[in-house]
Simulated assay, not measured.
Amino acid sequence: MAGTIGALSGVTLGAGPARADADAPRSRGPRNAQDWRAVPAPGSTPAAQLRRVSAAGAGLAWAVGEEGLAGPSRGRALAMVWNGSAWSMTDLSHLNYSGRLSDVAGVSSTAAWSVGLPSGDASPLLRWDGATWREASFPGRGEAGVRLESVAVGSDRRVWICGARGGAARLLLGDGTRWTWLDPLPVASANLYRIVLRTPNEVWVSGDQASGGGWSGLVARCNGTTGTWTVLPPITGARLGIGDVHAAAADDVWAVGTEAGVGGPPGRPGNPALAHWDGTAWNRVQPGFTVGSLSGIAGDAQGRAAWISGWNYQDQSRSTYLRRDGDGWTVVRGPAGGATAPYLNDVTAVPGTGGFWSAGMTSPVPAPPTEAYTERLDG
């Protein structure tokens, strides 16, 4: 399989210094730490991490991942819910699933969904019933080779899922009752990691595709009415995977991920990757640090890319973000004291506010005593 997006996914330290040009983000000091604050996410069994976070508003949000990772153990699913004042764990013992939940998306208390990696004979599809998660059926459930990687929910309550079936990357579309697999992405040897909606009928996906002996970054758009694909040119790099994408317009698309590079011992971190599509070509932008990763990107109320979550290998004492600053990006540090060396997997906007959530784990290695971790920026 090609590149895997996640903690310590890369294998090399080799990246040159950031360019000193207009595109290179400017670093800002700890004076910005008061903007983001750590919010306890208690109750999980170490090692634990939150992979994705989604908010319906100031008083309702969900976060999912895994807990109980130790040695050879694959761990088990972890899900939390925010009630406006605190995170609490959701009991998943009634589910016939023990693997990792990889994504969550919701727009209301009755329109939230989660997906996970295959465990046993099924990749799960879960629906929030207002109090807990329940398993939902879909075509291909339990079928060998079916993977549900990421989920998005539109304002029209339609549910979009990217994954794989029949040996090809493709989308699953449903309304909670009826589900349809759409035509495959017309790219061979592709993996999809994230799906996002710009509008209910404009669907974007990101991931990677085979390229020579490695892989390059993949971004594509699906017309939600016709199901037709527009595949952007590959984002070239040394084993580059795109973990998230944000489209403000067809000629204003940002993609973030990790470039694993070539060579180096196993377990060595990769290099953060930031690229912008201007409607004609991809332009790589220096993210302001050279070793680590970029994991998630979120837009503001106007639909413009606003925040990027990341991990800076060379300065792990606080979380690391990129904040949109005019036409460029500025490096911003998270709060002190929230965790000794936090690793962020995702960032998302809080609808109806100017706020944002981020989620991850308290250290960059998913081994005990690492715990689930969140930060919040009030709007």
Rank of each mutant, 00 (worst) to 15 (best):
P234D: 03
Y343G: 04
P366R: 02
I308V: 15
D21P: 13
D129F: 00
A79M: 12
R37M: 01
A105R: 08
V253Y: 01
T132R: 06
T180I: 03
A122E: 07
W277K: 11
E371Q: 13
V262M: 05
G106N: 11
F138R: 04
T132P: 00
S27F: 11
V146H: 03
W277R: 11
L148W: 03
A86F: 14
A70Q: 11
E143P: 01
T180A: 04
A238C: 07
W229C: 15
A168Q: 12
A55I: 01
G338F: 07
G263L: 06
P40C: 06
G267E: 02
W329Y: 14
S85N: 13
L60D: 00
L197A: 04
G334Y: 11
P186W: 02
P233D: 02
R158I: 03
S309R: 10
T236C: 08
P184I: 03
G14H: 12
S114H: 05
E149A: 08
P46V: 01
L50M: 02
R198F: 05
A367D: 02
L78P: 12
Y313I: 15
S9I: 08
L182W: 07
E371W: 10
L78F: 13
R19Y: 12
D103A: 14
S88C: 13
P124K: 00
A20S: 14
Q314K: 15
P17N: 13
S88G: 15
Q209D: 12
M1I: 07
A275Q: 10
L117G: 09
A220H: 14
M361E: 07
G326Y: 09
G237C: 10
P46Q: 02
R31N: 11
R194S: 11
R178A: 06
G257R: 01
A298M: 10
G237L: 09
V153N: 03
Q209E: 15
G338Q: 03
V107Y: 10
W357Q: 04
W128H: 00
R51S: 04
L95M: 11
I161T: 05
D325E: 14
D325L: 07
W36V: 08
